[in-house]
């Protein structure tokens, strides 16, 4: 319990750190921070003198440290500024897009973990076998080919040539809402393109972890005590090997999100990645920074979750 509380407390300085990094980025952006803070439609109504007064009120003429704190106050109240392009609150825009991104990112992560770990364990149990080598080579291949290349090939082969799957979009227009076959068929290609490098990643880690665990002292002891190999495997090897998988989950999240920028824009998938990419093209700095801040916060929370899970599955971690 103490461990979990300690972790929870740690989140706050981390969050502050994330805001500092984001704010520094925001200040590197060319452009007027005033525009980033105010509803552009309100601003259009103001005279120059009023704008100057508003600058003072918002503290934009203050030194950067003070400005950071006033910005932070706004962020704490949920004001991430307004998009240059749409004039809408950034927070609202990002929240709208989260479900679509989660739909493909989470699916990709689950598939990657399931397939990767299964294959990884299989490989480790048959070390140096034909399949082990095959999977290993596959894993190198999967992390060495740019994921947009997988996406293009997927479109070309499965959507254009074979016509098994739709090319783009999230749903066929007018096909209804909810979890439909139409939605699933639209998800297959983007999810696969996102998942492939991660399958490799899980696979290699799982294989390594099982090999490690197999030769760990307590496993040797168990074996020496005459425990059946099956029991050794399920009771000692697998359990110890699976714990580090939580770390892989955490570590793969930023990559998954980075990948969604490319994959969502290829497939016109209406998630955060597509919106973020368009924000980049539009030089919509408030939206860019809002997206970054929120994504980093999500990763941080996922880290927290995995730390807590760690604490639960691996009692050793609570030592301090």
């Amino acid at each position: 319990m103490r461990y979990i509380i300690k972790r929870l407390v740690m989140v706050f300085p981390m969050l502050i750190g994330i805001t500092i990094v984001s704010y520094t980025m925001l200040n590197l952006a060319p452009g007027d921070p005033m525009t980033a803070m105010m509803n552009p439609e309100d601003m259009a109504m103001l005279s120059d003198a009023q704008i100057e007064a508003e600058r003072d009120r918002l503290g934009l003429n203050d030194p950067i440290i003070l400005r950071y704190f006033s910005w932070l106050r706004e962020v704490a109240q949920g004001n991430l500024g307004y998009s240059y392009k749409t004039g809408r609150p950034v927070l609202e825009m990002v929240i709208e897009r989260i479900p679509a991104t989660i739909a493909i990112a989470a699916t990709a992560e689950i598939i990657a973990a399931t397939v990767g770990i299964t294959v990884g364990i299989y490989s480790a149990l048959r070390q140096y076998s034909f399949f082990d080598n095959l999977f290993t080579i596959f894993s190198f291949f999967a992390v060495s080919v740019p994921n947009f290349f997988f996406a293009l090939m997927g479109i070309f082969i499965f959507a254009v040539q074979l016509q098994w799957l739709p090319v783009f979009g999230m749903r066929t227009p007018g096909s209804g809402s909810g979890l439909t076959w139409d939605l699933i068929s639209h998800m297959v290609l983007p999810v696969t393109a996102l998942a492939l490098p991660h399958i490799a990643s899980y696979m290699r880690y799982a294989r390594g972890a099982v090999l490690d665990a197999k030769s760990a002292d307590h496993v040797r002891t168990a074996r020496a005590k005459g425990l059946a190999e099956k029991k050794v495997f399920s009771g000692h090897v697998l359990r110890n090997a699976m714990i580090p998988m939580i770390t892989i989950f955490t570590l793969s999240l930023p990559g998954l999100i980075g990948g969604s920028f490319v994959i969502e824009s290829i497939f016109s998938w209406p998630g955060i990645g597509l919106m973020g990419f368009e924000a980049l093209q539009n030089r919509d700095y408030p939206l860019q920074l809002g997206v970054t801040l929120i994504l980093a916060t999500l990763v941080l929370l996922a880290n927290l979750l995995s730390d807590i899970l760690y604490g639960i599955v691996d009692p050793r971690i609570r030592y301090d």
């Binding site: 070390q127 190198f140 992390v143 994921n147 899980y202 880690y205 390594g208 972890a209 892989i248 980075g258």
Partner: peptide
């Protein structure tokens, strides 16, 4: 951690030559 665009961090762990 290998920053792979859209990809996973490249794991270490035993691979081709143990």
């Amino acid at each position: 951690i290998v920053p792979v665009p859209g990809g996973a961090p490249l794991p270490t762990g035993p691979t081709l030559g143990d």
